[in-house]
């Protein structure tokens, strides 16, 4: 993969990672720049979540390194995580806390003096207000997903890492969120790395789409290619299916 930006927000170099005896990622090289929205596609079990877990410091790499805003996640994890916003998975939110307490605690963990007014305004926009003072345990999956994303936005981090964050969201909230993220990206405030199976997001909202197959990045669609795919018959779905089939055939 070539590097379009001189100073990437996320710089992944020769990354190998896995669990126990299993190696999942095999030499991933990849960059995300400021003002870029990257969609990460791949079959189930291809290593998308493992890649994101390694990027955010939840899983230590076996080889290679991950740099966030110039700081290594291995050698200088605290500094790297200051530039990171990670959407907490719905099942990882503390069930006994209210949504407002979740935001408060996470803001404190990021050493913020207060919950960002912009995040609260977005919560209003996403119609999260009625649940702000309810425990997470009482929330639906979609509401938790919204809360997880709001947690990621606290402190206006330059890099946003999102793992299937749009799953379970109602269409209206999904659209509002996509617009909000796109506006942030276009304003150059952040870069977004989103792992997803939603091809409409990849095709219509992302700047680049990369395909992960068996722990390796095997293909990339740039903005101009995505534009031509939108006009073509079958679009990204057909192109993706063809790529996966080619990879499966190549690996025997």
């Amino acid at each position: 993969m070539s590097d379009p930006l001189p100073a990437p927000l996320l710089d992944i170099r020769a990354l190998h990672a896995g669990y126990g005896e299993r190696t999942i990622l095999r030499g991933v090289d990849f960059r995300v720049g400021r003002g870029e929205w990257i969609a990460l596609l791949g079959s189930n079990g291809s290593g998308k979540s493992t890649l994101l877990d390694t990027c955010v410091g939840k899983l230590p790499p076996r080889n290679g390194d991950v740099w966030i805003d110039g700081h290594s996640i291995v050698a200088d994890g605290v500094a790297a995580k200051r530039s990171l916003g990670y959407a907490v998975a719905a099942e990882r939110l503390p069930p006994l806390l209210t949504a407002r307490e979740c935001l408060g605690v996470h803001a404190a963990a990021k050493n913020l003096p207060a919950i960002d007014p912009e995040v609260l305004a977005l919560a209003e926009e996403l119609r999260l207000a009625p649940w702000l003072d309810d425990p997470v345990a009482l929330m639906s999956y979609g509401t938790r997903q919204k809360l997880g994303l709001l947690v990621a936005l606290l402190g206006d981090p330059p890099l946003l890492v999102l793992d299937e964050t749009f799953n379970g969201l109602d269409p209206d909230s999904g659209l509002r969120l996509k617009r909000h993220l796109r506006a942030r990206v276009d304003a150059g405030r952040c870069g977004v790395l989103l792992a997803t199976h939603a091809l409409d997001i990849a095709e219509h909202w992302a700047d680049r789409v990369v395909l992960l197959h068996e722990g390796r990045l095997v293909h990339e669609w740039r903005r101009d290619e995505l534009a031509s795919l939108r006009a073509a018959d079958g679009g990204l779905e057909a192109a993706l299916a063809a790529q996966v089939a080619a990879q499966v055939a190549a690996s025997g």
Binding site: G104, A108, N111, P113, A114, A121, E124, L132
Partner: peptide, 21 residues
């Protein structure tokens, strides 16, 4: 309606988030 934007919490122990939780 107005509560959301009115709330501007200040934290007494900004570095003790896990204990606060």
């Amino acid at each position: 309606e107005p509560k959301m934007l009115r709330s501007a919490p200040s934290f007494l122990e900004p570095r003790a988030a896990p204990q606060w939780q």
